[in-house]
Amino acid sequence: MAENYIYAVARIRSRELSLLNESVISQLTACPGEEECLRILSEKGWGDSGMSGEAMLRSEQKKTWALIRELVPDRMDLFDVFRLPNDYHNLKAAIKESVIDGEHPGIFVEDGTVSARLLNEAMEQSDYDLLPENLRELAREAKETLLTTRDGQLCDIIIDRAALEAIREAGAKTKEKLLEDYGELICATGDIKIAVRCARTGKSRQFIARALAPCSTIDTGSLTDAAAVGFDAICAYLDHTIYSDAVEELKKSLAAFERWCDNRMIRTIKPEIHNPFGIGPLAAYILARDNEIKTVRIILAAKRNDLPEEMLRERVREMYV
């Protein structure tokens, strides 16, 4: 019930004041180096003094989820749609860690619905019963595929497809329009990215069909056919879908297409800034924080590598506030 979230939405409204706006992003973009960027972010309350860029971003991510957990401790399931990608990333990492010698610290991410340690333990021991039911068969199939074929890419597409399906299902299950739209957008744009990569690397039709997850705004059969033909066929197919305005970006690069996806999501959530009720403003805040962390990560990486400001401006995302 929308009225259950009044307190949470009011807290979020206060927190939105500290979100980074376009002018701060311009300021960061214009900074001469990473040090200056970190100083500005520190003044905005990001991280603690002396933190490295990546540590600062991780700390901000943690702050977001700590706030959400505090506001809706008993309805965290509503936000599975945002947390599931972490589970599937961790599953991939755990499977690869279990078949490759040595330890690789820092490969797991936090804030999934399943602990990374549990995933790692289950994969190390090949004890799939330790996993939640929805991951059991997938983990078994992905690991056995990797062990028998030694094809990491095949293992990845099995997990990526399952991740896209799970995200879409989690969004639909909430019955919240914003989250349903988010799940659908992630699934559809994920399919487009996979199709483009497959077309560029000349994958077989069978491989593409196995990689694409079904969704309602894209006919995966037609996209598979198009991807088997080539990149131009994908663009021609997308011209007849609701993603037709992404074709121009797709022709530039996958990075430009990813930026288009993020900007479209920000435009979708923007009305939530005026909504005083419901779960929508909370979901929008999570996405807005995610978007600003992603944008700051791009800026810091560009500053670290001395990329020109013009190139950076083409990559930064639109902001929520």
Binding site: Y7, A10, R11, R13, S14, R15
Partner: peptide
């Protein structure tokens, strides 16, 4: 009651 929840939300941070 509804307004009180919103007021508490705003006062928590400010």
């Amino acid at each position: 009651g509804m307004a009180g929840q919103a007021a508490a939300g705003v006062c928590t941070d400010n």
